[in-house]
């Protein structure tokens, strides 16, 4: 074996260890949360002292946390429905724009994603107060819709772009009306993108923190808000159990997307 090939083997080894380390860096915090939630012991310890689901049971005994979970789910569901419909309509509209205009339209539609959540939340705080929706559930809901919208729009618009425009002409020439073409051709072909957008919107809304902090109604709490407060006075595996639900939701989302569209095309 020559010195050169030894050297290249060593550098390759160093390279792959680096890669493993970097992926570990990405995943370790997630693993930590899930593992900590499964402990049978009294304290947040890693590795867990025995396995049990008792902390999940404990979570569901805490009325305030469960209420926050339900609120988060409700808000995420409404955000998903509203953004899904509005984004689908907008994406359909963008198809009749020229190439140049469509690029600008896309930038406009994704603005809430491109500017920091904190700034949008502050603007909304002032604006909702001005129009009398300050500290209301509706106001909070609006904030979530605005911030979840771009994820939904990007997914659906990407799905529509994949559809050959000639299919529209083909369907029309065979006698289908605009609505029939939408129902028989466009919608089925856009469905994976639509579902993906819905998953993104749901998860985004479920996880939003800053906007909820600034817009939350009096007495209302979302799960991330409740979790933050909980963490500041009690560092117990109950918090890990709450967080794990979010992790599981994300993995379910990733699995759905993979099944429908494939991750490579999604991101």
């Amino acid at each position: 074996m020559t010195v050169a090939s030894l050297g290249s083997r060593a550098s390759r080894l160093a390279g792959s260890s680096l890669i493993v380390l970097l992926y570990a860096f990405l995943l370790i915090p997630l693993v930590a949360v899930v593992a900590a939630s499964l402990t049978a012991g009294e304290f947040m310890r890693l590795p867990p002292e025995g396995l049990s689901l008792r902390w999940f049971a404990r979570f569901f005994q805490r009325g305030d946390l469960v209420e926050a979970l339900l609120m988060s789910l409700r808000i995420a569901l409404v955000s998903t429905l509203v953004t899904g419909i509005v984004a689908l309509m907008a994406a359909l509209a963008s198809q009749s724009l020229s190439r140049r205009m469509a690029v600008w339209f896309q930038i406009g539609m994704t603005l809430p994603l491109l500017i920091p959540e904190l700034l949008t939340a502050i603007g909304l705080l002032f604006f909702l107060y001005r129009i009398g929706l300050g500290k209301t559930v509706l106001g909070l809901q609006i904030g979530h819709i605005v911030l979840a919208f771009p994820y939904c729009y990007v997914s659906i618009a990407a799905a529509l772009r994949q559809i050959d425009p000639a299919l529209d002409d083909a369907s029309g020439s065979l006698g289908a009306s605009g609505w029939q073409t939408f129902r028989h051709v466009t919608l089925p072909l856009a469905m994976p993108g639509l579902v993906m957008g819905a998953v993104f919107a749901f998860i985004t809304s479920f996880d939003l923190y800053t906007v909820s902090l600034l817009l939350k109604p009096i007495g209302g709490n979302t799960l991330p808000l409740a979790l933050f407060d909980f963490l500041t006075y009690e560092f117990s595996p109950t918090a890990a159990a709450a967080a794990t639900m979010s992790v599981l939701l994300a993995f379910a989302g990733v699995a759905v997307i993979q099944k429908l569209v494939g991750l490579q095309r999604a991101f």
Binding site: L30, V33, Y209, L227, V254
Partner: peptide, 11 residues
């Protein structure tokens, strides 16, 4: 796809 809060909590 996992909230910032939860990832911070992991750390």
């Amino acid at each position: 796809m996992i909230g910032v809060l939860i990832r911070n909590f992991g750390w």
